[in-house]
Amino acid sequence: MSKSEMIQTDIGSVLTAEEIAEIDAELAHVPYKSGAAIDALKIVQANRGWVSDQCLQGIARHLDMSAEELEGVATFYNLIYRRPVGEKVILFCDSVSCWINGCDDIKDKISQTLGIDYGETTSDNSYTLLPVPCLGACDRAPVMMVGDDLVTHIDHEMVQQLFASAEQGSAE
């Protein structure tokens, strides 16, 4: 974000009253406001899908943190999205048990079906594809999460059924 953007941002117009109320509830059991940084980022993201520069700025001010410090926190964690994502995020497990069970081939099939690679979003904004560390369902490998759902024993046919209706191609 540019410096001028950060200074001009008006916090009152950025976070909603509901978001602020939710963040304040988290503040009740931390001794310092910055202790709720991750909770606050997650609250805003749950509401908006991702955390924009303006939102980051708004949260930082609300927690008495610098935007730079909060950005350092936000970019550390892989489940905080600092860029827009599609309606559903595909968290594709590429760890060892899924790899043994052929996840590379499944990932190629998904990329081919949706026309996107890791970090990209389909042009109809329905899906964003991201890799994720072991999802803890190795007995049902290969696995992934599609939005809130855990999808197990993935094969080509399942990929076809899940994603054939989505528009092909990357948004970028």
């Binding site: 760890s95 048990s97 560390p133 072991c134 803890g136 369902a137 007995d139």
Partner: peptide, 11 residues
């Protein structure tokens, strides 16, 4: 925070 690759017991 179960995330050790190949671990699926705490879930």
């Amino acid at each position: 925070d179960e995330m050790e690759p190949g671990t699926f017991k705490d879930r």
